[in-house]
Design a protein around this nucleic acid. Structure first.
Lengths: 200, 200
DNA sequence: CGTTAAAATGACCAGTCGGTCAAGTTAAGT
DNA sequence: ACTTAACTTGACCGACTGGTCATTTTAACG
């Protein structure tokens, strides 16, 4: 959870976390247009309380996104020490995809893309993912012309593919992760038509 | 363009098409929350005129989406007669991706997913894509365990991947189309963990 | 021309939004 | 128990939304 900047009174701290949790749920269900009033009701507080913790809706979004990215970063760090680098990368993509499936917050990410806090955590996660990719490449698990940035960009793709197919089983996205991961493997790789993008 | 239901007066027909074009641009730029007032201003008409052609905003969205899908269907039909089936499938994905890159209307698709007109055109496009995929599979260009529905779902993935990377060159998405298409090829294919979804 | 039905207009409506703030409530230190 | 600063509350504000409709404009036809 994001750290409250100063020492908070006990009720304030409790409400702050309730609001954050409610916001995460509400944004995931209603999209970026979820209203602050609804978030407040869900958290069991008045609207004014929400604005006393987060000055603007934008600030609330930033806090939710920062939480989300920080959780992913923990996973990436843990897997950086796993024995099989290829399996570690695939597991990271599996965990990240599953989080994304449970709560789609990508629209929040683009909404808060310019925020300094979010940028910092995102860069840090990017570095961890790049480390996973470098190890996997060195281990021969993925093709040599694929970079950490490539994989970072591809994280959400498998879930996105399945997002607008209402009747689908919850884990159908694993099928598309497998297809895309096959595209990352060395076997049968064809030359890529464009160079990998730099990060920042 | 979508056909006007009855015979329209000349100014009405002209304004109808202006509104449709303005709506497509405005939605692509502002997202689904683009206001009808803005669309009207962009089309050079009053707000009431928009609502005289499309009773609700929803109806306007449906018309834009239907246009978009119909254009894609023309491309798929044309490529159904191309000599090299593997190249034809790749070209369809290239054209579809490029359209998607120019105007992102996917959020409109999900907004109008339940509409009968949209459903009909979408099913029809799905059939054409499936035909392309079947020919490509028969020609050995793609793996045997990938279906038309798989490819239909994957259409927007390459562009989506790149969407939140602001500084990127416009055609970077071709890199991810190549990676994903490599995942569709027979060489180095690993077994897929989930069965392909049916298309209701 | 003149006539008329079709179409365009924009002020207007009710509802919702993000955000404010004076007044009331409460946790914490003594 | 008393005090006080921290915190919560919800009525309120201006801006904006999708949608309506009485009025005015205009294309089409004789």
């Amino acid at each position: 959870m994001t750290s409250p900047a100063r020492r908070l009174r006990s009720d304030a701290l409790r409400n702050r976390e309730r609001v954050l949790a409610a916001a995460e749920d509400e944004f995931a269900e209603q999209g970026i247009d979820a209203s602050v009033s609804d978030i407040a009701r869900r958290a069991g507080v008045a609207k004014g309380t929400v604005f006393s913790h987060f000055a603007t809706k934008e600030e609330l979004i930033v806090a939710v996104v920062a939480n989300h990215l920080a959780e992913l970063k923990e996973v990436a760090e843990r897997l950086g020490k796993a024995p099989d680098p290829g399996a570690a990368l695939l597991e990271f993509l599996t965990v990240a995809g599953d989080r994304r499936r449970q709560r789609d917050l990508t629209f929040l990410m683009s909404a808060s893309a310019d925020d300094a806090t979010v940028t910092e955590i995102r860069n840090s996660l990017h570095a961890d993912v790049s480390a996973l990719v470098d190890r996997a490449r060195a281990g021969g698990a993925i093709r040599h012309d694929v970079t950490g940035t490539d994989v970072f960009l591809l994280i959400c793709a498998p879930v996105h593919v399945v997002e607008n197919l209402p009747g689908a089983p919850a884990d159908l996205w694993l099928r598309y992760l497998a297809i895309i991961f096959d595209g990352l493997r060395p076997a049968g790789a064809s030359p890529l038509p464009r160079p990998a993008p730099d990060w920042t």
